[in-house]
Every structure is written in structure tokens, then in C-alpha cells.
């Protein structure tokens, strides 16, 4: 579904991605782990087109999208939930979700209903302004808004950040259901090992702009294995 070849990108003069290659089959979830400053966020931004690739290719559904603008990628079904949520603080939850429906191939009403069915926690907050929600609620809203556009591939940047433990569990359930019901493909950048282990089909470790190794998701939930195999990377 998505194929990334030798992708490179810079931030100003500083090289961030140094030749990343990965392929993702439809319906799979790929986790990306790594320290801060290793290029996780930049990888997602480059796939989304927010950062220009200086070399390499991104192919999506058989099409080369390396030079396509962001909104076209969005219309082709790639959704992105950035770190720090980026919801519209002065719009209500409802209007935030409606903004997400802009590229939806279905009726707005149906998309909104589906979003609330998926995220029942948002229903009582429907008329509140986005800015008045707590951090974790904003995170849910950002994810729900992204899903309103009915994307086929979503890029998630630390979705559990600032979310309470019990909602993280819910989030795992929600994501599992979405994978089944919609065959959603996901690239997941995450620091929470339990979360990434529960959802990913494969996990890559990124270091200095390269994918340096692949980890069995099952190994991540065992502290001894983590220390042995990837202790220095995460």
C-alpha cells in the first residue's frame, strides 16, 4: 500500500532522514520507536508532504506521491494526526469534526455519527469548544477528526501522549476495531511500549534518520526482552 524508498529529508541545513526504506501492506500497522531527535516526526511529515524529501520516493497505492502537495495526499486518503493535537481551539467539538469531514467520501451526517459511535467519550462534549477540553480529550478529538475523512492510511504521532491509562486501553480497542472494520493501515510513532506492542504488526527502531533494526512486537511487552534487545534504542 505504501512504499518508501531511500527517503531523505533535511531540516534547514541539518539532515534528519538519512535513507529510510519501508513497505506497508494494507491493513497493517507499523510501529516506529526511537529517541527524541532521531527523525520519527520528520518521517511522518515527509510521508505527508509537510517536509520536502530531498531524495528518495514515496509510493502510495502504486502512485508516486513524492512531489504531491499535502492536500492532494489528504484527498487520496492519507490522514495525519500530529503530535500536540492541533485541534481548532475556538471551534466546538462538532465543528472540529465537521472540518475533518471535508474530504470524506460519505455524507457529513453519517461520518459524524460514525465518529461519535467510535468515540463515545466525545458525545457529552459535543458542543464544548475544542480549547476547553483537557489534553487527553483533545487527543481523542484529533484522532476522531482525522477518521472523519475516512482515510485509508493514517499517520499517528504519539497518540497516547497526555492520555490517561484507562483511555489508552480504550484507544487500543478502538484502533483494533478500526483495523478490522475498515482495513485501516497505520504508521504509529509512539513511546508507550504497551500501546505500540498491542497494535503493531511490525516495529522498527529509528536512529539518526535510519531504520536500524526490526523488533518483534511481542518482545516489547516483556521488560527483560526490552532491556536485552532494544534497551539502548528506546
Amino acid at each position: 500500500m505504501l512504499e518508501v524508498r531511500d527517503l531523505k529529508a533535511n531540516y534547514g541545513q541539518i539532515p534528519i532522514l538519512d535513507g529510510i526504506s519501508m513497505t506497508i501492506a494494507e491493513g497493517n500497522t507499523v510501529g516506529v520507536l526511537g529517541h527524541n531527535g532521531m527523525g520519527k516526526t520528520t518521517l511522518l511529515k515527509t510521508i505527508m508532504g509537510l517536509v520536502r524529501a530531498t531524495a528518495g520516493h514515496v509510493r502510495y497505492l502504486g502512485q508516486d506521491i513524492t512531489d504531491k502537495p499535502v492536500h492532494e495526499r489528504n484527498q487520496m486518503g492519507i490522514g495525519y494526526v500530529p503530535q500536540g493535537r492541533a485541534i481548532f481551539p475556538s471551534l466546538s467539538v462538532r465543528d472540529n469534526l465537521r472540518m475533518g469531514c471535508a474530504v470524506a467520501p460519505v455524507e457529513e451526517k453519517a461520518a459524524l455519527e460514525q465518529a461519535l459511535a467510535t468515540f463515545p467519550r466525545l458525545a457529552p462534549l459535543y458542543d464544548r469548544l475544542g480549547g476547553t477540553l483537557s489534553g487527553g480529550e483533545q487527543q481523542l478529538l484529533a484522532l476522531a477528526r482525522c477518521l472523519c475523512g475516512m482515510p485509508k492510511l493514517i499517520l499517528l504521532d504519539e497518540p497516547t501522549e497526555g492520555v490517561q491509562p484507562s483511555i489508552i486501553e480504550e484507544l487500543i480497542e478502538i484502533m483494533r476495531n478500526l483495523k478490522q472494520s475498515r482495513a485501516l493501515t497505520v504508521i504509529l510513532v509512539e513511546q508507550n511500549l504497551d500501546f505500540i506492542a498491542a497494535l503493531s504488526n511490525e516495529v522498527h527502531v529509528i536512529q539518526k534518520g535510519r531504520l536500524v533494526r526490526q523488533v518483534e512486537p511481542a518482545h516489547l511487552s516483556d521488560p527483560a526482552m526490552v532491556d536485552e534487545f532494544i534497551g539502548t534504542f528506546v
Partner: peptide, 12 residues
């Protein structure tokens, strides 16, 4: 307020 958010395991 949430100092560990977005940090990896050994950074935490």
C-alpha cells in the same frame, strides 16, 4: 505538567 510526555523509555 506532563514532563515525561513524548519521551522514550530511558529518557524518562
Amino acid at each position: 505538567d506532563e514532563p515525561a510526555a513524548g519521551m522514550s523509555r530511558d529518557e524518562v
